[in-house]
Amino acid sequence: MTAAAQDPGSRKEPYWVMVIDLQKCIGCDTCTVSCKAENRTPPGISYNVVMQMEIGEFPHTRRTYVPRPCMQCDRPPCVGVCPVGATYKGESGVVIIDDDRCIGCRYCIAACPYGARSFDFGENYDEMIAFTEVQAPEYGVEQGPRRKGEAPIGTVRKCTFCLHRINRGEEPACVETCIGDARYFGDLNDPDSAVAKLAASPRAFRLKEEMGTQPRVIYLK
C-alpha cells in the first residue's frame, strides 16, 4: 500500500470533467438523442442540446456547433438560490437535484446562466410503449415507474453527467455515442488522463468563464 492510499486526506477523489472538441463536433445531435434514450426524458426536456454559436471576434467569426450539457459548475448559481437546499454539489462533483425535496419554485432555472435546467410539466411519450413503466436512475438513484402527478413531475431536472453510468465505471451516454469522437470524459486529477492533457491545450475555454461559475465542461475551440 502506498502512503497516499493509507491517508484518506491525500487520496484524491476523481475530478470528473467533460471535454468537448468543437472542431470535431459536426452538429449531428446524436448526443441529444442518446441522452434522451439513456435518461428516458419526457417531451420538452433535453438534458443535452446542440446550439449554434458565433465564435471568435469580428470579423473573424464563424458559426460553430456547441453541445450544451449541464456544466456541473464548481460554483453553481443554481445551488445558491435553491430555498430548500434541494439542489447541491454532490461528493462526485456532480450537481444533484433531490426531486423528493424540490418544491418546484423554478428559481434555479432562472438562475442557471447556461439554460441547463428544465421543469418537468408531466408530459409523456404516450405513443412509446412502456414509457411510463420505468424511468432511468437519476443521479444513480432508481426512480421506478413514472406516475401521474408524482415527482419528478412538478420538479426541475437536468443533466446528471450520467452519474449512474459513472458509478458503473462507464462514460456518460453522450460521450460514448458521439459520432465525431468530439467528447471526452475523465478525471482531471489524473495527469495522464486524456482530459487533463486536453484541458491544458491553448484551445481550451469554458462558457461564460467571466461569471465565475467554474464549469466542469471544457470546450476546445
Binding site: 445551488v79 445558491g80 438560490v81 435553491c82 430555498p83 425535496r101 428559481y107
Partner: peptide
C-alpha cells in the same frame, strides 16, 4: 429546510 444563501 433552509439555505442561507438563497434570498427566497
Amino acid at each position: 429546510y433552509f439555505n442561507w444563501l438563497s434570498p427566497l
